[in-house]
């Protein structure tokens, strides 16, 4: 099994808090990994470190066997869908403008149409992005992430503020990308049911990694699920 991502002893210390403490896990190519954890569990810090946005970490992150401190080439193989696509509401860009921004090889115009069709947003290609609904916008950002044929798709909780129908469509798109196109998916989510349905591996994060393994194993172990829910609940109460 080829290793897509290998994280060893990852520790991130912020001035007032340890955001990640000695986290290690491996993602094999073709895996669908769901990362779960309460707010403030370090999911965003983990992604920032993996994507090269945070370089102040101890430990090692490897993509395809290569330390990411040595080269940024691995970014070519990654598509990233942010938690909330932040942009100016009246930014003068159409759907195809946004997808084109992600396209590294600019002569590959056909690829844009192809990916828009695949995600059922081709009819929106000339619409301004500020006019779109949350669900449509999410698919536009997935299209932008996929337009370079990445080997790995990383998604940071991308279902907040999206209607149920769009969420279902989004889940079926993810399933197809993983099973048919063999794209490795790393997905952080609050939705335990969805993780149960879609992911074949689960990583439970709460600053430390307190579970990583097959999702059947996690979801069949009531004690683990309960533990996760309690940690989540404590964190939730702590925040209020």
């Amino acid at each position: 099994m080829l290793r897509a991502v290998e994280i060893s002893n990852l520790t991130v210390q912020y001035p007032d808090v340890k955001a990640l403490d000695d986290v290690s896990f491996v993602v094999n190519q073709g895996d669908f990994l769901g990362i779960i954890g309460p707010n403030g569990a370090g999911k965003s810090t983990l992604f920032d470190s993996m994507l090269g946005l945070n370089t102040k970490y101890k430990g090692e992150i490897k993509f395809f066997g290569e330390d990411i401190r040595k080269s940024k080439n691995y970014l070519k193989e990654i598509g990233f869908v942010p938690q909330k696509p932040i942009f100016e509401k009246n930014f003068p860009a159409t759907v195809s403008d946004v997808v084109r921004m992600g396209l590294r090889n600019e002569s590959d115009e056909n690829k844009i149409d192809e990916i828009l069709q695949q995600l059922w947003i081709h009819e929106l290609r000339n619409r301004q992005i500020g006019e779109l609904s949350g669900g449509q916008l999410q698919r536009v950002f997935i299209a932008k992430a996929l337009v370079n044929n990445p080997k790995i798709l990383i998604l940071d909780e991308p279902v907040t503020g999206i209607d149920q129908q769009s969420i279902e469509l989004f889940y079926s798109i993810l399933r197809e990308l993983n099973s048919k196109q063999k794209i490795t998916i790393i997905w952080s989510s609050h939705d335990l049911d969805a993780i149960n349905q879609l992911a074949n591996h689960v990583a439970c994060l709460n600053r430390t990694l307190f579970f990583h393994g097959k999702s059947e194993k996690f979801f069949s172990d009531d004690e683990l699920v309960k533990q996760y829910s309690e940690a989540s609940m404590q964190e939730h109460m702590h925040h209020h």
């Binding site: 994507l51 090269g52 946005l53 970014l75 990654i78 990233f80 942010p82 696509p85 932040i86 942009f87 930014f91 860009a93 403008d97 946004v98 084109r100 921004m101 992600g102 396209l103 590294r104 600019e106």
Partner: peptide
């Protein structure tokens, strides 16, 4: 493309 992308969203442009 680079100028437009980094104008649109710096963080995402960096990741790309």
């Amino acid at each position: 493309r680079q100028i437009l992308y980094s104008t649109f969203n710096e963080e995402q442009a960096k990741v790309s």
